[in-house]
Design a protein around this nucleic acid. Structure first.
Lengths: 168, 168
DNA sequence: TCCAATAACTTAGATTACTAAGTAATTGGT
DNA sequence: ACCAATTACTTAGTAATCTAAGTTATTGGA
């Protein structure tokens, strides 16, 4: 609520306060952003989830399912489900090679390629709305700070992964 | 990846780039944060989803289900399901009054109240990890910028809501 | 060369969220 | 005093995500 907190709080209480928790704030940013984006993409029958896979494929068409999962930040089973939907919607095709018969390569259909012109700018549009009133420097500051937070959390996650590897 | 982007991009391309999209970055922050938190809360059989409801109840015990939904930022059906789980786990009770028989008031059990001492600091702990290397000023800057983005997105959502009210 | 480990993907089942539509209780305008 | 609108909650059905446990193909060390 309050833009500037007038009261002093001890650290534990401070961070427990939803409005001050980075995790909570990030959740609200993500969901608000995502809902507005989906509202637009759905006019072309593309969900926000599918849009994320398409965005990656617009940049790198023909990568494997595994690579796509990594880039998008999803687990493989999630990708399987998403790709089923995209395949059904005629937006992607899967190709196997004799080279390594385990791999599946994902390709955009011509229709999906054309959709980039319409769908990609929608993200830019929401971005404009989200950053209204923020200077370029402030936007970069926000991006930079979020990246540092992401790096910190990734470091911690990595530490835990190493620990569980040792156990296993 | 890169902390500072060295290449100029036109706006559309710039914002389409996942690593620069506020929406994408917020998603990664939220999910990394959430996973680390859940890893801790699960040691007390509380999921991250449940934790969010408990956090609000620790601050305001005895509010209605509707109020709880709003505060936590979830829709009512989500709250219904979450409360079922919390009730089953013996963490909350529901109470009806004769005053207004539609309303259900949610109360923490003594056990859930005790859990605050253990579970609430876990968020603070993740927060410490997430903001490692950031000065107090930087943390406040990040919170402030995220709040401004949230306000911007909420304004837009409100506009759309008004439009659809007019139509209806 | 062979078999165990690894890699790529899939399936199954659970969780958490949503929208849309339903029920029951209350309120408010005529 | 009534009935239509609103409020509070629930139910039903769907989507997107996860973990755990498969299957099939490849690789690498004894």
């Amino acid at each position: 609520m309050a833009k500037n907190s007038e009261v002093y709080r001890n650290p534990a209480e401070y961070y427990t306060d939803p409005e001050n928790s980075i995790g909570y704030l990030a959740r609200v940013v993500f969901r608000s952003f995502s809902r507005l984006l989906e509202r637009r993409t759905l006019t072309h029958d593309v969900s926000a989830g599918q849009w994320r896979f398409l965005r990656q494929l617009w940049r790198e068409d023909g990568i494997t399912q595994r690579e796509l999962s990594e880039r998008v930040g999803m687990r493989e089973p999630t990708t399987v489900v998403a790709l089923k939907g995209l395949e059904k919607a005629g937006l992607i095709t899967r190709k196997k090679t004799e080279d390594d018969r385990r791999k599946t390569f994902i390709h955009l259909t011509p229709h999906a390629k054309k959709l980039e012109l319409v769908l990609a700018p929608m993200n830019a549009e929401i971005h404009e709305i989200a950053t209204k009133g923020l200077s370029d420097a402030e936007v970069e500051m926000l991006q930079g700070l979020m990246r540092r937070v992401i790096d910190n959390l990734a470091d911690e996650t990595r530490k835990l992964a190493v620990l569980s590897d040792v156990k296993a």
